[in-house]
Design a protein around this nucleic acid. Sequence first.
DNA 1: CGATTGCTTGATACCTCTCAACCCAGGTGG
DNA 2: CCACCTGGGTTGAGAGGTATCAAGCAATCG
Lengths: 236, 236
Amino acid sequence: MSVQLVVSSDFSIFATPPLSGNETWLSGAGDAEPAKRFGPRPADPVAHFTQDREIYGEGDTAKSYFMVVSGVVRICKFLSDGRRQIEAFHGPGDLFGIEIGGKYSFTAEAVCDCTVISYRQQGPETFQTQDKILLSQLLAYAMQNLARAQEHLLLLGRRSAMERVAAFLVDWAEDTPDGAVATLAMSRQDIADYLGLTIETVSRTLSQLERDALIELSTARQIRLTDPDALRDMNA
Amino acid sequence: MSVQLVVSSDFSIFATPPLSGNETWLSGAGDAEPAKRFGPRPADPVAHFTQDREIYGEGDTAKSYFMVVSGVVRICKFLSDGRRQIEAFHGPGDLFGIEIGGKYSFTAEAVCDCTVISYRQQGPETFQTQDKILLSQLLAYAMQNLARAQEHLLLLGRRSAMERVAAFLVDWAEDTPDGAVATLAMSRQDIADYLGLTIETVSRTLSQLERDALIELSTARQIRLTDPDALRDMNA
DNA sequence: CGATTGCTTGATACCTCTCAACCCAGGTGG
DNA sequence: CCACCTGGGTTGAGAGGTATCAAGCAATCG
């Protein structure tokens, strides 16, 4: 997907403070980098969430949407018996929590300590009344998320545990001086719930990949991809 | 999701004929019903596809998008070894094939004999230049599809075969004089590829549901839901 | 009719889950 | 400083659910 979000100076609509009592409000703003993509930083609705804190819950009234400044946020759904499916992880610059139905359709939680900026969200009428630039940005956002969800569908529906873990590592790998390295902000449980597996299967699969000399687990959360091409080829 | 698409009289942009040689062009228009939702019927880009015909392929240049007039269309992806994941079925009134990257990200095929209307698709610049009404319609479309994909993710990632089949039946059931009945346009293979299962597992699960007196298979494609509430409760 | 196609059913294999033990690093308190 | 505890991660044994392979059945179509 090659869509570029276009910066609009009136994209930012200043936020009401979010709902939960979980957040810490900061007087200074966070990392300025994402502002380059999304326009001027809003006045100050910058909040900090510590690890595993809920940012909002599924079914809550959707008063704000958010942009990640630093850290990683998970977006997930729960079944009544506690089973969890993580639909996406969002990192710096990513938006989350945009809703058209007036209620959040997911729960959002901090994977690690996070800083986010919140923006006031209008009701369903937003999409009739806002300006074209905002609409086209929202559309690009929605289409990108849709494309990601659709790839994820294929992964969950038709790929083996080994293929899923390989895809996950390739997704998270970044090129560093000594090759591709995936530095994971999330626990094995998070990975499992993202990939539709159990924690044990994720762990065993990683061990297997290490035995096969495709990866090296420097630490549990720091994984060197010894052979990134082989990992990519698993999902050709 | 309670979003209503708003009709705009200039929503329809007349189409170039689609690309493949699979379609049959009709001089008359199809069922008029969907026109009520999407504005005046376009001049005549109405095409008919027989069962299992490809409407477009993943990777093809996306020159048109489509609305189903009658029949059912499946939207799917393939892995190199032939595994298939059906992302969605689209019925009368549904749009499909809207792309922002210039290429189709799916293959679209006729589940049964289908009539569709095609609309010319602009390139990526569409979303900057079109009018607000169109943009908000596209946004609503994208958000609806996103919500559907996300529910599907939860189903594929965390639900058992029994739960998946039950959810599928509930989705397709319609209330009739003698209770809820699901009339299926698609084969067991289609259902399996939609639910991330095999054809045999789908068949066995349906048989089990019949033994449990939750459904009755009048024919393979005509299923009465004897106890719709119980089926719904499986996914509470 | 015989062939074909879609569906069902059976036997078995295998992949992933479940349950349990263990390991290890980090934090705490004596 | 070290024993202890804790939480995350790994590993093992066995169970279970779904896939695979194969046969049988029923409706449809030449």
